[in-house]
Amino acid sequence: DHWEIRVGDITIHLKDVDEEIIRWVEEALRNGDDLEEIKRWVEEVLR
């Protein structure tokens, strides 16, 4: 699977990601969370 999350001008590409993570990231972006923080979290989860 390949996911693209778009929020404003930001697009995040994710592969082999659980839908729950996608929802979490979308929510975090909508809440204005720091992008670097989100990326770190996702990388942590995917490890």
Rank of each mutant, 00 (worst) to 15 (best):
D16E: 10
H2R: 09
H2C: 08
I12W: 02
W24G: 05
R6E: 10
I10R: 08
H13Q: 13
I5A: 04
D16W: 13
L29R: 01
E4F: 05
V17D: 05
E20L: 14
V25A: 05
I12K: 03
R23W: 07
L29A: 02
D9N: 07
E4Q: 05
V42Q: 01
D33F: 14
W24K: 10
H2A: 07
D33Y: 11
L46D: 01
L35H: 05
R6P: 04
E4R: 01
L14W: 08
R40N: 07
N31E: 04
I22A: 05
R30H: 08
D9K: 05
D18M: 15
D9L: 06
A28C: 02
L35W: 07
I5E: 03
V7G: 04
A28H: 13
I10A: 12
D33S: 14
R30A: 12
R40T: 04
D18W: 15
L46R: 04
G32S: 14
L14N: 01
R6H: 13
N31G: 06
D18G: 14
D9V: 10
E37A: 15
G32W: 13
H2I: 11
H13K: 08
K39P: 02
I5M: 05
H2P: 06
L29Y: 06
G32D: 04
D16A: 09
D9F: 02
L35Y: 14
K15G: 08
D1L: 12
L46F: 03
H13L: 11
E19I: 13
V17Q: 06
V25Q: 00
E20A: 14
E44V: 03
V7F: 12
V7E: 03
I22V: 10
D1K: 04
V17L: 10
E43G: 02
I12V: 12
I38M: 03
E43W: 03
I10G: 04
E27H: 10
T11P: 03
D34E: 12
R30L: 09
G8A: 06
E43K: 02
E19S: 13
W41C: 09
E26I: 06
T11R: 05
L29Q: 01
V42M: 10
W24N: 03
E4P: 07
D1N: 13
W3V: 12
D1R: 01
L35N: 06
D16N: 14
E27M: 04
I10H: 11
H13V: 13
N31T: 08
R40S: 08
V42Y: 13
R40F: 05
V25S: 00
W41I: 12
W3T: 10
K15F: 09
V45N: 10
V7W: 11
V7S: 04
V25G: 00
W3G: 07
I22R: 14
L14M: 09
E20V: 14
V7A: 05
E44Q: 11
W24M: 13
